[in-house]
Amino acid sequence: MEEFGFKISKSTRIDLDSACQSLYNQIASKVPDIRTCINCGSCSASCTAATFRRTSFRGAILHINRGFDKKAVEFLKSCMLCGKCFLVCPRGIDTRNIILEIIRSEEG
């Protein structure tokens, strides 16, 4: 039969169910705040280190949520722990604790 009309294309939606969220869940068990992130980007906007290198707490959280743990570490490698992100966060997320947990995960 000749093909015509519309057909269902493969979904481009990010499927969080298929992502490996082990690090995300592991951190969430220690610092539940991480689940309240709304990705507003206040942390990245105020970041001291971001002027020198791509540093973003928001980016890191998005990446570990999607299972890209190594990339997440890259986002935080130049963090100076100054705590500005914690002060501007509208959800009061304990950012420095999460940053240290993510960096520690790299070391195994």
Partner: peptide
């Protein structure tokens, strides 16, 4: 506790 972790400030110029 943080003995084994390190940050990288080489891009900081």
């Amino acid at each position: 506790l943080n003995k084994r972790i390190s940050f990288d400030y080489t891009p900081v110029n």
